[in-house]
């Protein structure tokens, strides 16, 4: 099955700017999610995702169709930008859980009454569930952010971006065996970090 992004990239290399616009629309959400989960900061993620698209646009002539999947190429550029970002900050990515939940009416200091007042009809979005969900997300994101960079990247690519082991191996330029063992190690580390949360809940 031909990769649509790959086809669009070919058109873009022939001067079709609108094809690149389509590529952006198809990939912007996964890319922002990937960067946000890696950095633990959704605000910085949008900026870096834009930077990734700009970088891709500038080096579009260097893209070799068929050499690797488009997603591999995109995540490779994004990974390098993320690593540079962390290096420039000189500190590990911090997570701002209040920015991740996108309900605008709920601030960081929202009380249970506020949540009840804005509660939707859907049972899954009841205040109790929302608080629980927020707490759970905070715990998981904190656990991800605490992982070393070399384990965090493959874990996110595998379990959140759902790339295959081969694609991750190409993206991070690692042997396939190393990629697999690193992902298993990352999951074991995540399990240890979430132990208290899982056992308490």
């Amino acid at each position: 099955m031909p990769d649509l992004d790959d086809e669009l990239m070919k058109q873009c290399q022939q001067g079709d700017i609108e094809a690149f616009d389509l590529i952006v629309r198809r990939n912007q959400v996964p890319l922002v999610n990937f960067i946000a989960r890696f950095l633990g900061n959704p605000d910085a993620a949008e900026d870096l995702a834009q930077e990734t698209f700009v970088r891709m646009f500038k080096v579009i002539k260097r893209y070799k169709s068929g050499a690797a999947k488009f997603s591999t190429w995109m995540y490779h550029i994004a990974s390098n930008l993320c690593k540079n970002e962390l290096r420039n900050r000189g500190r590990r990515g911090r997570f701002f859980v209040d920015n991740v939940i996108t309900e605008p009416s709920l601030g960081p200091e929202s009380t249970k009454e506020d949540l009840i007042a804005t509660a939707p009809a859907d049972v899954s979005l009841q205040p109790g569930n929302q608080l629980e969900r927020k707490e759970r997300e905070h715990a998981v994101q904190s656990a991800i952010s605490e992982l070393p960079e070399r384990y965090r990247l493959p874990l996110i690519l595998r379990d959140l971006q759902e790339l295959s082991y081969e694609e991750i191996s190409e993206t991070l330029i690692l042997p396939l065996g190393t990629t697999k063992s690193r992902i298993n190690r990352a999951r074991l580390m995540l399990k240890d970090k979430l132990r208290s949360f899982v056992e308490s809940s």
């Binding site: 989960r37 969900r133 399990k191």
Partner: peptide, 18 residues
Amino acid sequence: LFRESLDLLHQLPQIELS
């Protein structure tokens, strides 16, 4: 515990764009 922590990871909500 391994399976449960992976389930939690997979349940992370998608971040919407501004």
